[in-house]
């Protein structure tokens, strides 16, 4: 049995079925991300003064990632144009570049995540807080037994409110803290506070969409590209539909970047 309207437009909708299906899927995605964006706004607006962090994220890296995804939207479009003009070499080049840009985006995101997981807030027994990147942990370090020490590269502050803004690079120094002086020690994972929880949820969900996009684009760049020669019109439609998904993922990042990194 032949599936109808995979190439020709359906008379009542004016377009082929896969495109309608993708738009319905994207509508559900808008609701998913819209709910999470609303959660972020409500959490931020409802946060008491001096409890919402500013400047915790690396703006230059975020800017580079924005540029990478913007370029990948262009290369996706160019790949679709190459399909329409039947230029196989250009299609392979543009889709390959999209893959490269997407993988680089994920690499930078992974570096940012690693940076957060290596950043520790150490509450000391005297009430002060040591905050910074974990440089070294002595072999005998055991917080429960109160043995050993940790070395952080960061700063010591008197209150939680002082941690809400990122310290100046000049104020950062090497801090040695003995386990006996530590009351509580926690890294900047999603469990650390509300801001990091919503940050990891939003960017993590976005990263999952990037991985999904890489799988789809990678398939049509690699083994799936055989369809170029057997059913070119269907292949062009599939590239357009995957391009719609990729543009949605890029558009989500264009909202995520200012909200999380700049505001």
């Amino acid at each position: 049995m032949e599936i109808p309207y995979t190439i020709q437009p359906r008379p009542d909708t004016g377009t082929y079925n896969a495109k309608i299906g993708m738009w319905l899927f994207l509508a559900s995605e808008v609701m998913l991300f819209g709910g999470l964006f609303s959660s972020y706004i409500l959490l931020r607006v409802g946060a008491p003064a001096d409890t919402w962090p500013h400047g915790w994220l690396n703006v230059p890296l975020g800017t580079i990632n924005t540029a990478l995804l913007s370029l990948s939207a262009i290369t996706t479009l160019l790949a679709w144009v190459a399909c329409k003009t039947k230029n196989y070499g250009r299609f392979k080049l543009c889709h390959g570049l999209t893959l490269l840009l997407a993988v680089t985006f994920l690499g930078i995101k992974a570096y940012e995540y690693r940076d957060k997981f290596l950043h520790y807030e150490v509450r000391l027994t005297d009430g002060r807080i040591a905050d910074g990147h974990l440089e070294e942990k002595s072999k005998d370090f055991d917080l429960a037994k109160k043995t050993g020490e940790v070395v952080l590269h960061g700063r010591i502050v008197g209150s939680q409110a002082e941690l809400m803004t990122h310290g100046k690079a000049a104020d950062m120094k090497e801090i040695k803290v003995a386990a006996a002086d530590i009351k509580r020690m926690q890294n900047y994972g999603p469990w650390h506070n509300t801001y990091l929880a919503i940050y990891f949820v939003l960017t993590g969900l976005h990263a999952l969409h990037i991985i999904g996009g890489i799988l789809i684009i990678g398939y049509y760049w690699g083994p799936g590209s055989a369809m170029w020669f057997t059913n070119h019109e269907l292949f062009t439609n599939r590239i357009e539909v995957s391009g719609l998904f990729w543009h949605f993922v890029d558009l989500v990042w264009i909202f995520l970047f200012p909200v999380l990194y700049l505001m």
Partner: peptide, 17 residues
């Protein structure tokens, strides 16, 4: 809406940003 139209939305969002 085709990829061309969606790309226009993307370009508009990018210039706004």
């Amino acid at each position: 809406m085709s990829l061309k139209a969606f790309h226009l939305v993307f370009v508009t969002a990018m210039s706004s940003l």
